[in-house]
Design a protein around this nucleic acid. Structure first.
Lengths: 119, 119
DNA sequence: TCCATATTTCGATATCTCTAGAAACATTGC
DNA sequence: GCAATGTTTCTAGAGATATCGAAATATGGA
């Protein structure tokens, strides 16, 4: 991942509503959620939600598709794992203090007998 | 890591100069670098650098100590690994698409025969 | 075609962020 | 005590961001 996209993703995730949107969409999974449902869940005006969703889409964190009258948003898992990779490779440079704790978490998350949720 | 601190860290890292500062300090390691040296490296005014360093310190990404006339800044590795953990545990919830690629990176980074740098 | 629904774009406003010069503060050495 | 050095705080201004109502756009159904 290039620095420019990482900066863009950090900016996108630094806003409370947008972080909650990403969380919501990650849990929602493949089927995703229509913009209106997200706005209702967050308690914001439709236009405000549209603004935030555009930010997230431009950062590459979500993808949208039209389905009849609705526009359905889904999480882009690759952007999230790419960001984690960026943090480890960029911040690990020359040091292991960052990478090793991350390895421990990832190992716990992804063990064959781990529950579906990683926390 | 609490959502509040994660938001604060995302905001801190969403600014190009600050991201570069973190990178610089991670590489600098334990001895750290004085504010003036960082400002010179980045080509910013001392007051601007002070502003950014304060942001980073408030986010918990760096720590400062006085040494004679200089103030030395060092990276807080725990905040970085904590952020990675936050991303994995918060975004992995119910899904493995994020965690598994992260595990692959971390494994490569931290293998016994891996070079000091993780990328 | 016309109306209802879902969402985005536009316009305006309030707030926050970034920048750097000037002044203030802290430390050291003479 | 005084000057030099290193850093922070203050102040101000330019630019970016977040919010929402109103208007515009797109789709589906009667």
């Amino acid at each position: 991942m290039e620095e420019r996209q990482a900066l863009s993703i950090f900016a996108a995730l630094s806003q409370e509503t947008r972080l909650r949107i990403v969380r919501l969409l990650v849990v929602a999974g493949e089927p995703g959620l229509p913009a209106g449902a997200i706005a209702e869940e967050m308690g914001t005006a439709a236009s405000t939600m549209s603004f935030h969703l555009k930010e997230l889409e431009q950062a590459g964190l979500v993808r949208s598709r039209r389905e009849s009258r609705s526009i359905i948003y889904t999480a882009e898992y690759g952007a999230l794992s790419g960001l984690i990779r960026f943090l480890m490779e960029d911040c690990c440079a020359g040091r292991r203090e960052v990478c090793e704790p991350a390895l421990a978490v990832a190992t716990g998350c992804c063990a064959p007998d781990a529950p579906r949720a990683c926390s």
